[in-house]
Write a protein that binds this DNA or RNA. Structure first.
Lengths: 236, 236, 236, 236
DNA sequence: AATGAATGAGCCTTCATTCAT
DNA sequence: TATGAATGAAGGCTCATTCAT
């Protein structure tokens, strides 16, 4: 049994603009004359590169095992530069997670595309979730929260407050709408909206841990799950 | 936002006989009046204490952040003693996880208590799972696997092979039985036995991360979930 | 009988500019007024200081007993700094030895100052050797190789290949020249050039181990040795 | 470049009586009924085994790198047993060296076999030395003293006092005899008896370090050396 | 006397953080 | 603003030594 050696080079998807072709050891010094105007722009770019890199590393190794040295290398900046943007490793981690959750939060704010049946809405949500979360890096972030939550209560709290509780509230509203409209018969489902999203979370975890052994068609699974709740549709 | 300081003393559930109450610096030399007569017995006890302590620390901090120093202190042994029982931190971690999973594996071997309806069987299984796993340290171990799996592929593999694939196979058999007996109408459920257990896993994660904010009645949630699959029962 | 306590402070010949006199706890941060203008220069200086210090410690204690902590202290750098220059203790040791041998190797390359008789050449070589090796730290390095060679075969190999075999080859050539010129009568000496240098090595070892008890005039000894080979000279 | 891994099993020449055939992990407990009479005998045997084992390990690894665990294993005793015979590692080392030197010391006491010419006597001594020292473990001990001398001044002192100074004194007497008898013409040789033995020491070191690369016929070398001093003999 | 489990000081090495340039 | 050399606290692991059996 061997763990992933910490020297493993997680293939770096170079983060955008910077990183001139050919530059071996990423020498970011020779950036040439900087137009005073785009200073801020350049800084923002750097910061973005750091965020990208840090997320990748944190996802791959977890908080403690991540080395800022690696983050810097991957971001193509010097180690010290990280400290121009973040107070320390811990704050960086927390800030990163928050930032990464923002899109999810926003989606929860957006009123669900209310056209059509409740099932369509839920299915739309689920497809979206699976496409945008379960099979992307955002899914890894969810797993990261599960992993580091106990050591970063603030992160867990934030996630609960901003994502989980809102998401469940929205889901409950949908369920109640479904019940009101007669689409859903099981009234008690409204007491446990978690049930509605459970397969989505399963999918997230499955992708990280077992996809290699047994690929999982998350969308289809979710559809079957919805059949349980709304009754079979395809028969029609 | 602050993470749990690494110096935080996770309250140690003292492991059995040794460890006199109040003893601060845990001086394990003066055992004197402690009963265990023979050598082997003492050794086994020590090893058990280390296992206990290590599991607690690993669960609380994750692999990398766990200090063997703390494990030793919590177990009431010297640091060197750990190395009489385990090759190194990594082997200790892997061995611990495997050991901790054995009870779960055994339960999967045991033929499901086949009396009664399929729903009863599943419900029995779920109640059991929630009682023995979701709300105990075994649940934390599942979360630990989710957390460290990507860095310990061997652990993830082992968990998949010994627990997940077997568990799902068993569940699929039950589902097929339910379909054959007419208890379950949704035939495609057999393709995704994950759906059946999804709420159980949700419960495990919820306990670790959010129980503090919003307690979750896992048993009741699971019952509602079963209602979706088997049809409501309580109406009777 | 007591060995040198490992805490013994081997008097450090301070390595160059840095290191203000008397400074106990060696706070190398406040360099301030120290001259070395540019980065590279400073780095080279530090590296040199480490090399100096490490050699002294290795010579005084041998490989295993040398503590990098002491090396760092003696070099006036932090422990971590060593690792900016060397991969680990072992590589440092091997690299150090090789580096320290380079001057000897170079001397072997240089064509012997061919003026005069063979005896003069050998005597010149010997005087040089005794002046530059036997009574200096280079002699200690030879002893160090003798001491650690069996545990570092690579070091022994390197020493044999680069110094011993070349040195003996050169010496053999000289001997043959001496035989050809009629300066040396014992033809079989060419089969054992080791004999020619034996007293030099004896001198090296004597200096390290017994000089304190009985000083040895290595130069004079070598001259007597040459008398055996070339016939007495002083009579003239 | 790689050093000998410390795990290297130096092939143990099992030390005599003990060590029952087939006994894997050398379980010295089952020694059966001990005749009260031979207690002391058994103890002496054990001690001898420890001495043997320790010498081998010290020679192979040097003082610091030698683990008492390995010594115990090789001697077929428990680690604690070593402490019944020696105060600590350091004393053991010093005592071992002293003990190992005794035979050499004794030989020096024994009046040189005074029959025949001085050359015969020296040649006899040298042949003896090369046979009994240079190519045996005793030679390794000489190298060990060279290696550890600086860190164990007491050892170096002892060696100087008991072996070196006596040996040289004896050699000087022989040289003076040779001069008196007209066998040796170079009178100043008496001032540096080291010259007489230098090739012998060279041979010792050569065996340890370079024998593998280039075997050395020490006896023949010594004979050539003597030819230098006494004049060629074979021509006759 | 002999054992070997247990101890804990100590050492190599890593890595978050600082700061002179 | 950005760099990266330097720092030193901390942690994994070893091993001489002790001591209950």
């Amino acid at each position: 049994m061997s763990k992933i050696p910490s020297s493993t080079k997680i293939p770096a998807k170079p983060t955008g603009s910077r990183r001139v072709a050919g530059g071996a050891a990423a020498t970011p010094k020779t950036v040439a004359a900087t137009t005073p105007a785009n200073r801020a722009e350049r800084a923002a770019e750097r910061r973005a590169a750091i965020v990208e890199a840090a997320l990748d590393e944190f996802i791959a190794r977890g908080f403690t095992a991540t080395r800022l040295d690696d983050v810097a290398k991957r971001a193509g900046v010097a180690k010290g530069t990280i400290y121009l943007h973040f107070k320390d490793k811990e704050s960086m981690f927390e800030e990163l997670i928050r930032t990464a959750l923002v899109p999810m939060i926003n989606r929860l704010h957006a009123p669900p595309p209310s056209g059509g049946s409740v099932r369509d809405m839920v299915e739309g949500f689920a497809e979206n979730f699976i496409r945008e979360v379960a099979s992307t890096r955002r899914g890894d972030i969810v797993r990261l929260i599960v992993a580091e939550g106990p050591r970063f209560p603030a992160i867990a709290d934030f996630y609960y407050r901003e994502v989980v509780s809102r998401g469940l509230a929205g889901m409950r509203a949908l369920i109640e709408l479904g019940i009101a409209r007669g689409e859903i018969r099981h009234k008690s489902l409204a007491r446990f909206p978690q049930i509605m999203v459970a397969p989505a979370l399963i999918a997230v975890i499955w992708q990280s841990l077992f996809a290699r052994h047994a690929p999982l068609d998350a969308t289809e699974m979710f559809r079957v799950h919805l059949d349980l709740i709304f009754g079979e549709r395809r028969t029609t």
